[in-house]
């Protein structure tokens, strides 16, 4: 588990690569409090630096990693171990949940 401070401030990471790109970010359940103010109902469209990883995006919003449990990119599962290796591509949707269950 990383300390949040290791990536703080995260702007340098967001700006790496060739330029900004747009993704859709969805944070659900107790994570919704980490969404930027312009978010509407758990969803926000945001610009990130080219090559920014899932981990970097979450860090930039201050989402505690220990609360990140289920991560989907366009509905496909991304294992926790790959969050810092998986760069987001333009137009992708990143959806993240804390530990949850259902019935």
């Amino acid at each position: 588990m990383r300390e949040r401070g290791a990536h703080w401030p995260p702007l340098s990471i967001l700006r790496q690569g060739s330029g900004p790109l747009k993704i859709t970010l969805k944070l659900f359940a107790t994570l919704s409090g980490y969404l930027p103010a312009q978010a509407h109902k758990n969803v926000v469209e945001m610009e990130i630096g080219d090559g920014a990883t899932i981990g970097a995006v979450l860090d930039s919003l201050g989402v505690p990693r220990q609360q990140v449990h289920l991560t989907l990119v366009d509905g496909l599962f991304v294992p926790l171990g790959e969050l810092d290796a998986r760069p987001l591509r333009p137009g992708e949707t990143l959806a993240v949940w804390p530990p949850v269950a259902g019935g």
């Binding site: 969805k26 659900f28 359940a29 107790t30 758990n42 609360q67 449990h69 289920l70 989907l72 509905g75 949707t93 959806a95 949940w97 804390p98 530990p99 949850v100 269950a101 259902g102 019935g103």
Partner: peptide, 22 residues
């Protein structure tokens, strides 16, 4: 975290968005 936080707070209804995204 599931049984102590997610289920009490959101109930089984926390699944709606997950299953929809999936």
């Amino acid at each position: 975290a599931v049984t102590h936080e997610a289920l009490p707070t959101y109930g089984t209804q926390v699944l709606t968005n997950i299953i929809n995204e999936l």
